[in-house]
Design a protein around this nucleic acid. Structure first.
Length: 707
DNA sequence: GGAAAGACATTTTTT
DNA sequence: ATGTCTTTCC
């Protein structure tokens, strides 16, 4: 880890300490006298970046290292220099929802039939085109009318984004490349500043990200990339394995280091995983080894149907617990999120506390996005996606028809939608709608006069002034009640942001909200079993892992069949799942599975057949009925059954117990009344001294014990 | 313009 | 089985 050449590729197999290698290299550079200010570290997730920074603060000047994701870096560049290439630095970062809403409006404008090309497919194709064709091949453009519709959509989409100062995820990278290409002075500025560039998870970069690095790198600079081609699992998002395989050609004179010692898994687990991945061709020749003991064989559980599989999963969790495992040492992975439901049901039945990583991400919730859309219109007055989303939420009498009239007028006059709004009369909008529109615009004007920091008061002003909060409060709907709580949590989150980020203003807050990921959501030490997709499991490790749904159709996924590159990636996905396990690995599959279309026959995943039999232990719960007895007498549960009684003492996994005094960053002191339900939506009920009883998402309520 | 009821497809992974 | 889109009626 003490290499000093120009370009270095560290091929680090699963469990060889990849991320640790990167952190140590940065630390080493700094101790060698490299200015931390001259170090750029690009990680795959914000969480990884935070962790890196946390470890570096101990070093002198370590805080000056620029660490973040590719998208974060792109945003950083464009906020500073976007002006130079015609991008308003107040731009908003769009997510999928926003893309969808813009596209749907365009469908209407151009009168394109949604059945010709589904909007979600159009999004995938737009991204594919923007990424220069990297990664997954395009959808079928040869069908009648599709190519034509797509060209129209694409042009209109790009246009609308420009006109509204909106950038999608791809734009953050693409425009950064354009910036560094067109503006030599800017390229030189960062070329001189970043003496050392380090990139983690290089196997999951796309062509644009590679170009960005190439543009950034000049003669005096050094680059280190760390990755493992066998763990490249984001092809559908444009990642190209060839980036890491061809690193030596992209960056001349690159040297290579191979990390092959696995410190994580037992010999049986590693051997089984290696047997699976060896069948791939697109890979870097390497052979992992471990000095750990053989350990137990990989357990393969064959189940009759999906319900039985759920029970088998719960039973296996209990078996591990009996062996002395804590619940948070156990993880359950699946290929598709839809599989979590059956497992959750079974875990609930067996009263096993669990947490789902991902699912509906907090920042994607409707009410949270609504609130954020108000805020977006403060920083970017032209944000069309935000405007359309909330101009009539709560109801202001500005319905679909009014909005469409306004859009038509905006397009005709070549204005941003929001610039057209004050001229609603000319657009032919009804008097009633104009009144609502005016109140909406007045609110925005009023709040825009506020300072951009702290953030929480701005959010409050918007939520109050718009009547959004009131509309949730007045509704008798239970759903709205829980929405209100989520909105309150967003404000609480903003409070915390204000307290922690000295430099943080509304724009920084919105940026964080736009760029956080599901993978940022995993927190250890919850005292619960973790459930997640294999993609979400990337980079994590657990003593005990169970992979559910190891069947043809999931591993490999049915949609990948027929594409060679796709099938290799499916194999890698299974490999990633297997190599998360430290001590125990179990794999379950069902012979019949209930899907939304009915019951289907399922063959086991072909990858299981690649594992040498001596590394396997097979348990067949599908063939003879004798095994049914396994399920007849449920195991005595070790966790108290869920009860409505608020006085039951339950551990929240945060070291808090019902009845204790707690402190919330926003709501202040209160008494913990109950811990509700299980799963990713586990909620705590707290009676706050100043705010009354509230239910909060355990995941986000940053409660502290008050003594 | 808006609420309610009915139709419909929905399932890969997500920065 | 769920959530989203469309239709229908006020």
């Amino acid at each position: 880890m003490t290499h000093a050449g120009q370009a270095l590729l560290v091929v680090a197999g699963a469990g060889t300490g990849k991320t640790r290698a990167l952190t140590r290299r940065v630390a080493w550079l700094i101790t060698q006298g490299v200015s931390p200010y001259g170090v750029l570290a690009i990680t795959f997730t914000n969480k990884a970046a935070d962790e890196l920074k946390r470890r570096l603060v101990e070093l002198p000047g370590g805080g000056a290292v620029w660490a973040g994701t590719f998208h974060g870096f792109g945003s950083f560049l464009l906020r500073r220099h976007g002006d130079d290439i015609g991008i308003d630095p107040r731009f908003t970062i769009m997510d999928r929802d926003d893309q969808l809403s813009i596209l749907k409006a365009i469908y209407k404008d151009l009168d394109i039939d949604k059945s010709v090309l589904r909007p979600r497919d159009a999004i995938a194709m737009i991204s594919h085109r923007k990424n220069g064709g990297g990664g997954r091949p395009p959808l079928d453009l040869t069908l009648p009318g599709v190519a034509f519709a797509f060209d129209q959509l694409f042009d209109a989409y790009v246009d609308r984004l420009r006109g509204a100062d909106l950038l999608d995820f791809d734009d953050l990278l693409l425009e950064s490349v354009r910036l560094l290409t067109e503006r030599e002075d800017v390229a030189a500025l960062y070329g001189e500043r970043f003496v050392h560039v380090l990139v983690d998870e290089y196997q999951d970069t796309n062509l644009v990200q590679r170009d960005l690095l190439k543009r950034l790198l000049g003669p005096g600079q050094k680059i280190t990339v760390v990755g493992d081609p066998d763990q490249s699992i984001y092809r559908w998002r444009g990642a190209v394995v060839r980036n890491i395989l061809d690193f030596g050609e992209d960056f001349e004179g690159a040297e290579q280091v191979l990390l092959e010692r696995n410190y994580r898994s037992t010999a049986n687990i590693l051997g089984a995983a290696e047997a699976v991945i060896e069948r791939n061709h697109e890979r870097h020749a390497k052979r992992l080894y471990t000095e750990r003991e053989a350990g137990r064989p990989v357990l393969v559980i064959r189940c009759r149907n999906s319900e039985d599989e759920g029970r088998a999963v719960a039973t296996q969790v209990q078996a591990w617990v009996r062996e002395g495992r804590r619940l948070d040492e156990i993880a359950i992975f699946y290929r598709v999120n839809a599989l979590s439901r059956g497992i959750e049901l079974a875990l609930n039945e067996h009263t096993i506390p669990y947490v789902v990583v991902a699912g509906t991400e907090f920042f994607q919730r409707r009410e949270v996005k609504d609130a954020l859309s108000y805020a977006r219109l403060i920083t970017n007055p032209r944000d069309e996606a935000a405007f359309s989303r909330i101009v009539n939420v709560p109801r202001r009498g500005v319905g679909a028809a009014s909005l469409q009239r306004l859009r038509a007028y905006a397009i005709r006059e070549e204005l941003a939608l929001t610039e057209a709004a004050p001229h609603a009369e000319k657009a032919g909008v009804s008097k009633r709608a104009r009144g609502g529109l005016q109140r909406f615009l007045d609110l925005l004007t009023r709040v825009r006069a506020m300072p951009r920091a702290p953030v929480a008061p701005i959010l409050e002003a918007l939520l109050e002034g718009s009547g959004y909060r009131a509309s949730l409060e007045d509704s008798g709907d239970d759903l709205d009640r829980s929405r209100l709580e989520n909105v309150d949590e967003l404000v609480a989150y903003a409070r915390e942001f204000d307290a922690k980020e000295a430099e943080g203003d509304l724009q920084a807050f919105l940026e964080r909200a736009a760029l956080v990921s599901d993978q940022d959501g995993y927190v250890g030490g919850t005292g619960r079993v973790s459930l997640m997709s294999v993609h979400a499991a990337k980079g994590l490790e657990f003593p005990c892992v169970l992979i559910a749904g190891a069947e043809m159709g999931y591993f490999p996924h049915a949609r990948s069949l027929g594409e060679d590159a796709g099938e290799e990636e499916e194999r890698r996905l299974f490999y990633v799942a297997m190599t998360r396990a430290q001590d125990a690995l179990a794999v379950s599959h069902a012979v019949r599975r209930q899907t939304y279309m009915g019951e289907e026959h399922r063959a086991p995943s072909p990858y299981l057949g690649d594992i040498p039999e001596e590394r396997l232990e097979r348990r067949d719960l599908a063939t003879w009925s004798g095994h049914r007895s396994l399920f007849d007498a449920p195991e005595p549960s070790y966790a108290p059954p869920p009860q409505d009684d608020a006085d039951v003492v339950r551990d929240t996994g945060l070291g808090l117990e019902v009845g204790e005094r707690v402190l919330h960053p926003y709501f202040g002191p209160g008494r913990l009344e109950a811990v509700g339900g299980g799963g990713g939506d586990a909620r705590v009920t707290v009676d706050f001294d100043d705010h009354g009883v509230k239910q909060l998402l355990l995941r986000h309520a940053r409660l502290e014990k008050l003594s």
